[in-house]
């Protein structure tokens, strides 16, 4: 698993690629929590994530909770089918703001 940071329309975009599983989720969690408290809205790009498990989802949930506390906004963008399936199974598809593209994400969080 890897991640890349960029900016788009005033939002930080963190794009993950590869599998987020028990082995890699601590790294994803650390990267996500590193963005909390920076004031900017956060877009998590999951287009390159072929597989995400419960520990990866838990990291996203933890980040979402921290972001809410710090008054930031967070949205998931370009979620792959596999990742979306897991979010749906966990009934989290209604908890997260999920957008089709980065542009839509920017509109929803700014």
């Amino acid at each position: 698993m890897e991640h890349q940071l960029s900016e788009s329309g005033g939002a930080i975009v963190i794009a993950f690629s590869g599998d987020i599983d028990l082995q890699t989720s601590p790294e994803a969690r650390k990267a996500l929590l590193g963005l909390v408290g920076k004031g900017q809205p956060i877009l998590v790009d999951l287009s390159g994530v072929g597989y995400i498990d419960s520990s990866g989802v838990a990291s996203l949930v933890e980040c979402l909770q921290s972001v809410k506390k710090s008054g930031q906004k967070l949205a998931l963008v370009s979620v792959s089918d596999g990742a979306l399936r897991v979010l749906q199974l966990a009934r989290l598809d209604k908890v997260f703001v999920i957008c089709g593209t980065v542009e839509e994400g920017v509109q929803s969080v700014t």
């Binding site: 989802v57 838990a58 949930v61 966990a90 908890v95």
Partner: peptide, 11 residues
Amino acid sequence: DLRPGGLGTHL
């Protein structure tokens, strides 16, 4: 309950 853990068994 949004706490992490226990989710795997549910899945």
